[in-house]
Design a protein around this nucleic acid. Sequence first.
DNA 1: TTGCTCCTCACGTCACGTGAGGTGGC
DNA 2: TTGCTCCTCACGTCACGTGAGGTGGC
Lengths: 282, 282
Amino acid sequence: MRTHVTIGDFSRATHLTVKTLRHYHEVGLLEPAEIDPDSGYRYYSNEQIPMAQVIKRLRGLDMPVPDVKAVVSATEPEARNRLIVAHLNRLEDELTRTRAAVGELRSLLDGPAAERAIEHRTERATPALAVSALVAREEALTWWQGALGELGAAVRAQGLEPSGPPGGMFASELFQDGRGEATVFIPVAGEVRSIGRVAPLTMPGAELAVTVHRGGLSGIDIAYGQLAAYVMSHEIAVDGPLRERYPLGLLDTPDSECWETEIGWPVFRADGRPCPGSYSSR
Amino acid sequence: MRTHVTIGDFSRATHLTVKTLRHYHEVGLLEPAEIDPDSGYRYYSNEQIPMAQVIKRLRGLDMPVPDVKAVVSATEPEARNRLIVAHLNRLEDELTRTRAAVGELRSLLDGPAAERAIEHRTERATPALAVSALVAREEALTWWQGALGELGAAVRAQGLEPSGPPGGMFASELFQDGRGEATVFIPVAGEVRSIGRVAPLTMPGAELAVTVHRGGLSGIDIAYGQLAAYVMSHEIAVDGPLRERYPLGLLDTPDSECWETEIGWPVFRADGRPCPGSYSSR
DNA sequence: TTGCTCCTCACGTCACGTGAGGTGGC
DNA sequence: TTGCTCCTCACGTCACGTGAGGTGGC
């Protein structure tokens, strides 16, 4: 039998607070079955209980309210499942990042950072195939993966021989403001064509202080910090985008623990002599 | 060498945005090494980089800013470690709840709920040892565990023989407003003493519609919902606190998957005849 | 000098929670 | 009729992000 009950009764039935139920009404996530036009009283049906339970679970999994709305209003089960699976994948990725952060936290607290080899390098202007975009920090990792993948495919499709490892170039604004110009590239010589987002581009040369980060990207800011500390303490920093090179990276193995990322920080060099250096954070 | 750099440089070194650094200054989480009194310019030291990296990791683990402040300002390593371990335990608990929610979501979406046996029961007034408090929803589970544990210890300490399984009584406000009176108890007869929060209390009698929930408490709202739907559709609901009994629970085994929780919903009964019933949510 | 970097308000975001002040239903 | 339940604003919370409007440093 279908019955209409007050918001208080429905709250007890679903373990959602009255305030939450009113909020869900306001944002259109869970509309009362009936509203008294005089008093404004909300009345819910017992048939809405399972729906409320699904909403409670999805919100408990931190799915944003608009996404929850999309799930509960999806008419086809496949569309509904796609949305849920996508969110579960996001949770899985988050868990991976959490595990990494715990490990990095331990090594940060476990004492002085290991001595880090830093060398200077003169990067020459290099013809390449590249993908560029204005990206925001939160979407940066996704963008980077997609762009690198597309680049790799474009190079294979044209039967090109890379003249060096893939690389990236990131405007300072990306780190400072959380949004900025990003470029990934694969150096190639000779005749190349544009495909999709992939276009030929000559990467400019630069003077760089370079260090290597081994492992996944979640810990890369540690290496950035040590490199920055070296550059700062030697007072050789100059403006310019930060560089990366991926001699062993996404295009070689999906296991990010094996990756090797070279980080290049733009520096000033007064003379032509090589100036090797090393830095310990303590 | 110690150097002071601008907020922009420090941002690039730490991968914290300028806005975030200013915010951390405002809330006293990470103070610049120096502030120009004329211009208000913030200057950071390269020696602050490791601290910023720790802060970034802790915030990445969703530790609240005041807790992060406590960690980075802790002088003793043991105190610091205690705070971190406590937070990691919270993350672990959250992961357990997440896993449970995913499972519950699947069974909610996988089709109609299983038929649920519901019976009516007349609960008589029962002398008991009890712990009562006004609790908020977020702390309810913690409170419940602690109170039940303390009760169990008090019963053992006094060498009492329980006259029934432990139980609980929860005011409607706890579910509706997220805060309300909660009581847990163990029925005992005879002479009893108060110890700590534990005091003798006579649990009032009630007419109840009862069902059994098997498993951990994260999924208990599903059973509540089915019981509520039954009570609603038979229009027999009356006001009063919700009841629980734990014939197999926290005091018997730490493995919540094995738990059996009886849920009692206060109902009206017009006559003395037993009125068994059952409910399927579809 | 130009343009970039830095500054300080003030307000926005997200998903509710808190409280004030008032009305409706049994 | 009383007291409880419901209602609608309006504002608060948390950890920043967004912009406006203005100044400082190389």
